[in-house]
Design a protein around this nucleic acid. Structure first.
Lengths: 148, 148
DNA sequence: TAAAACTGATACTATATTAGTATCAATTAA
DNA sequence: TTAATTGATACTAATATAGTATCAGTTTTA
């Protein structure tokens, strides 16, 4: 069971790249080569993110993509929903058995409870947070390199 | 994004049926018809559950399947792992970027933290618990029927 | 002892999702 | 005017999920 597909994975990486260069345009090509993401695949993901107002683009030479939405307000939940559809544990498992005559079903509630836990956990992780974590790691590793 | 696939969904239903009739054999056919599960599909799932020592079988006339493991010790996590593979958020996303020179990677840790939360939530849900919930619902709905 | 009701094992097909590629038109900076 | 870029969209490939079919072996029971 894989929770994040390549779409989401690549999208997160691309957003981290854009968030790091906030305010300037980065071309799809440069992101693709730097982060090992298949170029045409990435372009589609970027288009999708424009539609969701996460980023903006500029056509032509020196064009590219730029961060639009505040990275701290872009959650992994949102990205999962864009690229993998809304998190759902299962279409009401047990429907026939229990829910047929009763509107509500405790089992379904049990499952939905988990669904919400999962969602809220992913909501805590934003592009902004990931970016800061990333910067910390880079500092640590560059220090370590100096010592070696 | 669907967290439970049909495999797991059907397996849970079949286990609930078997747990409810603890100590006696139920045929694949009867489970399939009663719970609307494709017969041959179900048989494969049952075989798999035998391999994992959740249930046992008896061949021939009056044969079938019987609960083996304590329903309170069968977690949804276990079933997901059997039928959908181990829960993993992503194969180390960002590997190339960060983990290449450092053994550890905070981002990976962030992701793994969520992975563990998800797992532990599903671990709270056992076949035994679901069965008890189910019985409560049945009581409530039969009372309601009487009143009507 | 033979038939019927079962499971064991396994191969097969169909469908959906995920992953990746290709192409051409339009835009823009130099 | 050309080269570097995005916009849009159609296409293929690979993998995972879902479901079907078949035949051999076992056991109860008439």
């Amino acid at each position: 069971m894989k929770v994040l597909t390549k779409n989401t994975d690549y999208a997160i990486r691309a957003l981290l790249a854009l968030a790091a260069k906030k305010g300037s345009y980065l071309s799809a090509k440069s992101i693709a080569t730097e982060h090992d993401i298949p170029y045409q695949f990435l372009r589609r993901l970027l288009q999708e993110m424009i539609r969701h107002n996460l980023i903006v683009s500029k056509e032509g030479v020196q064009g590219g993509f730029m961060m639009q939405k505040n990275p701290d307000e872009i959650t992994v939940t949102e990205l999962i929903e864009i690229f993998q559809g809304k998190v759902q544990v299962s279409e009401c498992m047990f429907r026939k058995q229990i829910c047929s005559n009763r509107a509500r079903c405790v089992l379904r509630h049990e499952i939905m409870r988990i669904e919400h836990v999962v969602q809220s956990e992913f909501e805590k992780v934003t592009i902004g947070k990931l970016l800061r974590d990333l910067e910390v790691v880079n500092q640590v590793s560059s220090k370590a390199t100096t010592i070696n």
